[in-house]
Simulated assay, not measured.
Amino acid sequence: MKLSDNTIFITGGTSGIGRALAEAFHQRGNQVIIAGRRQALLDEVARANPGMDTVQLDINDPEQVRAVAAQVILRHPSLNVVINNAGIMPFDDAGAGSLNDEQAVGLVQTNLLGPVRVSAAFVEHLKAQPQAYIINNSSVLAYLPLAVTALYSATKAALHSYSLSQRFMLRDTSVRVLEVAPPWVDTDLIHKSGDARAMPLDDFIRETLEKLETATTEVLVDRVLPLRANQGANEHALIEQFNLSLIANPIPVA
């Protein structure tokens, strides 16, 4: 994927990886449109990045997704890249006898149905472009689940699976499907802490963009590669080791 002269729509573009990606693409001469739920944050990002466009969007509202997509396409007919980045990461307990059903439904809506809806709303337009991309932001937890965020990890595994099918179904079109699977990056998704186990955001963005130029399927920073390769009959040992290590040294939360 070329890193300049694109028109790029990014969900969840007001903080964390989404904002950092938006600003990196903006600085490389792309027209960037960020979407988010809170207008005040959209305005803040726009002020810091003159020329960047914004649109208010709740990806849990299917009618709003379709309306916003039509609006963005009308305003930016050269749109050729859609980045499904928006996500939430609440903690849960897969071994408990109680379930916060509202939280669980909201998580699946945002992390899985959100990208599905956004992709569907834009895909016919993307097919009409000479070269276009759908980029789905999953997680290393798609391959190595974090037990205290069991449902989050499951939604990211589902998004990985969906990306595989989406890539196949679009194989004979101009649309390529790429999947970014970040490691633990030091953002405010959980709690920005400076923890040495988390990859600094600037390092993650720099390496991701480097790999994005030549990627054809997945965009994985180097520290993710051994974990990506862990899947298979013997994957359980590393998953247990990983989760036990986090019990011994918990992730800091606000």
Score class of each variant (00 low, 15 high):
143 Y>I: 08
226 P>W: 12
94 A>P: 09
243 N>E: 05
76 H>C: 03
7 T>R: 08
41 L>M: 09
90 P>G: 04
217 T>H: 09
212 L>I: 08
223 R>N: 12
22 A>G: 13
5 D>C: 00
213 E>V: 09
47 R>P: 00
127 K>A: 06
76 H>A: 03
132 A>Y: 02
106 G>C: 05
3 L>F: 00
230 N>P: 00
48 A>M: 04
11 T>W: 03
141 L>N: 15
188 D>L: 03
231 Q>S: 13
126 L>P: 06
16 G>A: 07
170 L>M: 13
253 V>C: 03
21 L>P: 00
133 Y>N: 11
8 I>Y: 04
120 A>T: 13
175 V>Q: 01
153 S>P: 11
136 N>A: 06
4 S>Q: 11
134 I>R: 02
50 P>E: 09
28 R>M: 05
66 R>H: 12
116 V>I: 14
179 E>N: 10
236 H>L: 15
168 F>C: 11
12 G>V: 01
121 A>I: 05
50 P>K: 12
151 L>F: 08
41 L>P: 00
133 Y>S: 10
155 T>S: 14
101 D>L: 14
148 V>E: 15
121 A>G: 03
36 G>F: 04
14 T>Y: 04
36 G>C: 02
63 E>R: 14
88 I>N: 01
213 E>F: 08
80 N>L: 07
35 A>T: 00
121 A>D: 06
249 N>G: 06
120 A>K: 13
107 L>K: 06
183 P>V: 12
112 L>A: 04
222 D>N: 13
142 A>N: 05
118 V>R: 08
164 L>V: 11
205 I>Y: 06
45 V>C: 02
1 M>W: 07
123 V>N: 09
153 S>R: 12
139 S>T: 12
64 Q>P: 11
190 I>L: 13
85 N>Q: 05
168 F>M: 15
253 V>E: 13
164 L>A: 12
129 Q>V: 02
121 A>H: 01
227 L>V: 14
26 H>Q: 14
127 K>F: 03
102 E>Y: 07
205 I>S: 05
208 T>Y: 01
83 I>S: 01
62 P>T: 05
35 A>N: 00
3 L>R: 04
191 H>R: 07
62 P>Y: 04
120 A>Q: 15
74 L>Y: 15
183 P>T: 08
146 L>A: 14
222 D>M: 06
78 S>C: 10
35 A>L: 00
79 L>D: 02
251 I>P: 04
